[in-house]
């Protein structure tokens, strides 16, 4: 399994913080009877050979291939696990954020076969064999995606929690051809809430990134 990489402001000190949280989680897991649902995904290596077939019959776990950011990952999961929980808790791609977990805030936005969707309302089992792109898959090596660069340039965030969802949504918004005016950007970005209220800067970032992506600005 490859290392999950974190982007942007999260990088500084992020790994030690995560290790700390993980060790806490390990302690508390020892105290609870049942693991949370997201953790119901178990490593492929420990799958018994009698695993149920791909179509997922019975109340047992389901074997799926998830193609995330160009890598195929094999998972053995409870069909209740959402794509969001599979990404964060099983594949350790924590760039995708859990906000409301009810399809209202947009923090969990990812691309499925190139289209923006909410990973909190997508069952992981239904994303099998489809192309999932998360915020971790946007940059080309060290080169940020134009939308990522524009968010930094325009200060398109404060706390940053909604930012991965905003950026994934913004990339799709531009690709769909819905960045023609400020009004259009606001309308087609309305599914991504920002409680810090960074909206004006987010709109600016999208305008700049859209121009760059069209090649109007070098």
């Amino acid at each position: 399994m490859e290392q999950a990489t974190d982007s942007g402001p999260d990088c500084e000190g992020g790994s030690s913080r995560r290790q700390f949280i993980r060790s806490l989680a390990a302690i508390s897991a020892g105290l609870t009877v049942a693991a949370p649902l997201g953790r119901a995904a178990i490593p492929e290596e420990s799958i018994p050979q009698t695993a149920p077939p791909n179509s997922g019959s019975g109340l047992g776990l389901v074997r799926i291939n998830l193609k995330v950011n160009g890598n195929t990952r094999r998972l053995f999961i409870d069909p209740r696990v959402t794509l969001l929980d599979a990404l964060r808790d099983r594949l350790e791609l924590t760039g995708t954020k859990k906000g409301c977990d009810r399809g209202t805030c947009g923090a969990c936005t990812v691309h499925l076969d190139g289209r923006r969707v909410l990973s909190c309302l997508t069952l992981a089992v239904m994303a099998k064999e489809r192309e999932v792109t998360t915020i971790e898959g946007l940059a080309k090596g060290d080169e940020l995606h134009p939308v990522q660069a524009a968010f930094i340039e325009c200060d398109g965030f404060q706390c940053g929690y909604c930012t991965p969802g905003q950026i994934m949504s913004a990339v799709a918004c531009i690709n769909e051809g819905h960045s023609g005016s400020e009004r259009e950007i606001r309308e087609f970005m309305s599914g991504n809430l920002c409680r810090c209220g960074a909206y004006p800067n987010i709109v600016d970032a999208i305008k700049i990134a859209a121009a760059k992506m069209k090649g109007e600005v070098s």
Binding site: G106, T122, G191
Partner: peptide, 9 residues
Amino acid sequence: SASAQIRNM
């Protein structure tokens, strides 16, 4: 209706 993400789903 809804948002761009939800309309895609």
